[in-house]
Amino acid sequence: MKKIIFIILMLAVLPLVITSCKKKGCTDAMASNYDANAKRDDGTCTYDPHVDPHITLSFEHNFDGSIVSSSSFNQLNYSNQAGNILSIEHLEYLVSNIKFYKSNGDSLVFSDYNLSNLSDMNSLSFELSDHVEEGSYTGIGFDLGFNSSNNISGSYTDLNAVNWSWPDMLGGGYHNMKFEGKFIDTNTDTISYAYHMGKAREITATDTTFHDNHAFIKLNTSFNIENDASISIDMNIAEWFKNPNTWDLNAYNNMLMPNYTAQIMMKDNSSNVFSWGGIVQ
């Protein structure tokens, strides 16, 4: 009797022993449910949908190579091309319409915009809301400010709330940049400057016209996107005073928003302000 029970038990357990030796499961290491213990594939492998990399853009600032942050504000420790000794107290600028250029001539365009404020560390980097496909690229581009189709008065609530609007009497829309500080003038007085950039109002004897004055920035450099990556972009603040127009703060310091000549000079000087800072992925 005992033998019979033993045999029945053995027969019952044997299949379990056999299957445990040949564990079934997903055997593809690339699958999301890969089972390292599985010996035999059972067709259950599932795969995550492919996710393109997330890209973060971060902005870094220097004055001819000397790092600038809010901790270096309020000190007269910079000298520009014209020889003006100056401080920085406020630097805030809008970047929009970001583009990634592909080797085949196509480009990816992102609708994001970002207001970088050196007094707020968190504002200096932002993640693109859309992913960037893997591959090789030949450069990136962006608008400083909004281009004319995006520069619509009142349409960005977050920017309205921080007084980023450009006055309607000057053509409306939004500031490109607010850059303020103090400098030592020819009388050795310390006075302020407010280098605010936006639409340029031109008044002639017969007409008033408003010129779109955003700067399109293109940084040519070859890079590959393989994974989530952080791209840094450098602003050399000294360039705002340098090339092609040597900017003497004694001549141009305040009330520059309605000053057509100053606005056009700002746009001209924007061409070498930004440079590629590198990619980490």
């Binding site: 107290e89 406020h90 303020e180 103090k182 007085d189 006075i191 302020s192 400057y193 407010a194 310091n253």
Partner: peptide
Amino acid sequence: VDPLMKNVL
């Protein structure tokens, strides 16, 4: 003084 107080002198 705020730089926007441009005519302070």
